[in-house]
């Protein structure tokens, strides 16, 4: 089996670009707080979703609808409607994280396939099997805290398909279990679908150097001519004890392209690319590359040489937790 490439689409144009570039599957969300990439100008209204899914199906691709924030008390109807509308629009599956919403979807929309979002941070076979037995979850997106051997271990103990992130932004914390962003800004991935939101970013000229603040907290200070990474909280420069530096994670992005053969051996079904906030040309290039890579792997041919470095906007890249360096 060729490994499935699951691509992000923040706009209908990106969806079409991803499909044309060879994506097996595209994931996207509605343009509201129900999805974890709730950025201004991104995502799909209902008509766009219906048209996007039809386009993908016409080209033999699938569409997953991410409804993966945690419904706000008193407003669950918004999230339930998103699940209902995803089914009406013809989605191949919904990606959910919240227990209450999973329960609702399993009971009220049993015919709609359910994937477990990375936001549920299901990090071992026991809990994955529990989600499968309880809510009929067919696929789990694994949290980015696991090594390849740990992923292989999980796959040996579950029938649930696994999907892992291979490229793009990297959470260093267990996803869905981090409120650093709301501590500093009031807006969080779990509640609002945003992390380190641009609305709370301030850039200041500091005698020629650049200070980047989030919610008033200094995250980066970079000298003139140095690359200025976006001030994502967990990738900031801080001090503790005697040390100053990137104490949690460097301003890096994930690139696990070299690990694809190992991930396949580990039993992974699908490779996920992060970046619903990315442009359609970016999405198309990344998809083209990863599609070529899994096709080559399937045909027993050498993997194409890495060409992704230039897409990471000058950022360093890491294999994250997959190689056992964290452990």
């Amino acid at each position: 089996m060729v490994m499935e490439i699951v691509c992000p689409a923040g706009t209908p144009a990106a969806l079409r670009a991803a499909v044309k570039a060879g994506a097996h599957t595209v994931y996207c969300g509605f343009n509201d707080e129900t999805n974890a990439r709730n950025f201004p100008g991104l995502n799909f209204d209902r008509a766009e979703m219906r048209a996007g899914i039809a386009f993908a199906h016409d080209h033999g691709a699938k569409v997953l609808v991410a409804i993966n924030t945690f419904p706000r008390a008193g407003s669950e109807a918004i999230w339930k409607r998103a699940v209902a509308d995803a089914e009406i629009c013809g989605a191949d599956a919904v990606i959910l994280a919240d227990l209450g919403l999973l329960d609702y979807a399993a009971r009220s929309h049993p015919g709609l396939r359910r994937h477990l979002s990375v936001q549920a941070a299901a990090a071992n076979a026991d809990i994955i099997n529990f989600y499968a037995e309880t809510f009929g979850v067919k696929r789990v997106v694994l949290p980015r805290v696991l090594s390849v051997p740990e992923i292989a271990g999980i796959n040996s103990e579950t029938e649930v398909e696994t999907e892992v992130f291979v490229f793009g932004g990297l959470c260093v914390m267990a996803e869905g279990r981090c409120s650093l962003s709301s501590y500093a800004t009031g807006l969080s991935p779990n509640m609002n679908g945003v992390c380190s939101p641009a609305s709370h970013v301030e850039y200041q000229n500091d005698q020629g150097a650049l200070n980047a603040r989030l919610g008033g907290y200094l995250i980066h200070h970079v000298e003139r001519n140095e690359p200025a990474p976006y001030p994502t909280l967990c990738k900031g420069c801080f001090s503790a004890g005697e040390k100053t530096g990137h104490l949690f994670e460097d301003p890096v992005s994930l690139n696990a392209e070299r690990l694809i053969p190992q991930l396949q051996k580990a039993g992974v079904t699908a490779l996920k690319i992060e970046g619903r906030q990315r442009s359609k040309s970016y999405v198309a290039q990344v998809v083209r590359y990863f599609r070529a890579a899994v096709d080559a792997l399937d045909a027993g041919q050498p993997m194409p040489e890495g060409m992704l470095a230039r897409l990471s906007e000058g950022q360093a890249m890491t294999t994250g937790a997959y190689k056992k360096t964290w452990r």
Partner: peptide, 9 residues
């Protein structure tokens, strides 16, 4: 993550 009535129930 107990954010809403559905999860609590």
């Amino acid at each position: 993550n107990v954010y809403n009535e559905g999860t609590l129930k």
